[in-house]
Design a protein around this nucleic acid. Sequence first.
DNA 1: TATTGTTATACTCTATAACTATA
DNA 2: TATAGTTATAGAGTATAACAATA
Lengths: 143, 143
Amino acid sequence: MSSAPLAVTQRLGYLLKHAQLRLAELAEPLYAPLGVTGRQLALLTLFADGPAQSQQDGAARLGVDRTTMVALVDELEAKGLVRREVAPGDRRKRLVVLTAEGERVREAGAEVTRQAEALLLEPLTAEDAERLRTALHRVVRAE
Amino acid sequence: MSSAPLAVTQRLGYLLKHAQLRLAELAEPLYAPLGVTGRQLALLTLFADGPAQSQQDGAARLGVDRTTMVALVDELEAKGLVRREVAPGDRRKRLVVLTAEGERVREAGAEVTRQAEALLLEPLTAEDAERLRTALHRVVRAE
DNA sequence: TATTGTTATACTCTATAACTATA
DNA sequence: TATAGTTATAGAGTATAACAATA
């Protein structure tokens, strides 16, 4: 079947984009009461993970430019969820550290993320849902 | 394991976004020789599918605003890949119809899309790749 | 009155270039 | 010289509001 028309709704690009849109639709209303966007919560998750990271560490892991990261961290700092600390070994670097409030929001957000993902994956069996996540992970890591 | 930290790279939102980014990275260089972007090719695919569609039909199926669709169709028309035709039954509507050249580009693009998808899905078995597409389709249709 | 396409406009997201301070 | 963070700016991509033609 190598010459089937492949309708636009069967293209992976379309499916990935719309799965993402739908997930955002499900998740954002749940994040709103926490006072943060999904993006901001992703950032909190990122900077809470492992040893303290600089802005550029975070930018690299998130796949955004370092200039973009400046604005993202500004937002979180303005909300009092993170603070910038000069890195002990290299005074050029700024480590992004969660405040106590930031940690609270991150935890609450993690629970909400699970709920939103569960809603998105509802049409799938638990096994297929796990396979989906694994397949995406494999495909993304192949960078 | 309902309270596992769920690192940012395990979140579905992250995985979907980065899978999409990687697919675009793989596909765009292949589309370039055809003189179109992936977006434009998706539009050609959309308007080639089934009976002639109006701009708003296309906008609805693609999930974009009708004002956005105007600019998208403008691009394709400027390249000579589609033309607007007044709908026979309703003179307010504009049917978007592929030109012969548009049809050629669409066909060449479909083949290239398959190649790019194959590259993305390379780390998966054929069975897992098919499962991924099916799972995404199911999740997206639940709208 | 409502709908399709259009235009003007604004908003969001992101990156490039140039600057500063540190290394 | 090179790197981390920053600022100013510009470019995509998208949507809202208002308008013309048609229903």
